[in-house]
């Protein structure tokens, strides 16, 4: 007759890591947690965050929240709606422009279409640079290039999206099935015929679905472009916040939320129709 303690001892001898974790791993993990917490505290201290400031600000936030109710438009609702339509136009044209630029770049950047290392590498690095700079920064730059207004916003969205879309498009072209291309070539087709007849039908649904996904994301980013003067509803939003007209701010936010939700819904529905599934392949998060 063995006691429970004996059996536990036997099991832990046979499988050392099963009952008691490896002490080195355990302490390593604990040390990592302690280091993480210390880093968090130090970073907060370095940035000048303090619970005191948080609580004093919190009362101000409460005042804002109370003044937001009820939301009012003060007779500006037509201007707000026009600005909202302008926002959608910026997002739409930006996406269209980015997609049109990304199609040739996608083929150019695909290793199986243009087997030149220099072009491939150079294009990818340029796209990395374009992508590494936020849309709002591009918007600010375009405002000083082409002046205030929605055109700057369209160009900013188009440029930033090209950085991402061209990369996704190129990957889609690289992932296309080669057999179809071999078929076209064996029937006497040229390189252009391969691109048009073998690769294009395979990648078009991927292109379309990603562009729709980006239209969705761009609608969100276009709502704030007006903060730097690049058109859309963001101008009114920033302006009303500047003059502390909190009930107008609430009204504008309440206009934006359902619009964004509706565009999300529409884009998801179109994506599903376009390729028969929900998520955009190749797009993260």
């Amino acid at each position: 007759m063995t006691t429970a303690a004996d059996r536990i001892a036997r099991v832990s001898r046979t499988y050392p890591a099963l009952l008691y974790p490896d002490p080195r791993k355990l302490w390593g993990r604990r040390a990592a947690w302690v280091a993480f917490v210390l880093a968090f505290l130090w970073a907060s201290y370095h940035l000048g965050l303090s619970p005191m400031r948080f609580w004093t600000g919190f009362t101000d936030l409460w005042i804002i929240a109370r003044q937001m109710v009820p939301p009012t438009h003060n007779g500006f609702w037509l201007d707000y709606l026009a600005a909202l339509l302008e926002t959608l136009a910026i997002a739409f044209l930006g996406t269209i422009l980015a997609s049109l630029i990304s199609i040739p770049l996608g083929f150019l950047g695909a290793r199986n279409v243009v087997p030149s290392f220099a072009i491939h590498f150079g294009l990818r690095r340029v796209l990395d640079v374009v992508r590494g700079v936020d849309t709002l920064i591009w918007a600010l730059i375009f405002v000083s290039v082409v002046g205030l207004g929605p055109f700057a916003g369209i160009l900013a969205i188009a440029l930033n999206d090209t950085g991402v879309l061209a990369k996704i498009y190129a990957e889609a072209v690289e992932n296309a099935d080669r057999k179809a291309g071999e078929g076209v070539r064996s029937a006497g087709g040229s390189g252009a015929d391969v691109a048009r007849l073998a690769i294009w039908p395979q990648v078009f649904p991927v292109f379309l679905s990603n562009s729709l996904y980006f239209f969705e994301a761009n609608t969100r980013s276009a709502t704030i472009l007006g903060v730097v003067g690049a058109g859309g509803i963001g101008f009114f939003l920033a302006d009303r916040i500047r003059v502390n007209a909190w009930s107008d701010v609430a009204f504008i936010i309440l206009l934006i939320l359902p619009t964004v939700a509706a565009i999300d819904y529409l884009s998801r529905w179109l994506r599903k129709k376009a390729i028969g599934r929900h998520d955009a392949p190749g797009a993260r998060m």
Binding site: L47, G48, L49, R53, F54, G57, F58, D60, L61, I64, L136, R220, S221, T223, I224, V227, L237, A238, I241, N244, V249, I253, I256, L257, V260, A261
Partner: peptide
């Protein structure tokens, strides 16, 4: 759904300029 920048503008009013 509310953009970060909108929150940031509201919070700059409440908490003052700065990282908080």
């Amino acid at each position: 759904t509310v953009p970060e920048l909108v929150f940031a503008m509201l919070f700059v009013f409440a908490f003052g300029l700065g990282a908080l």
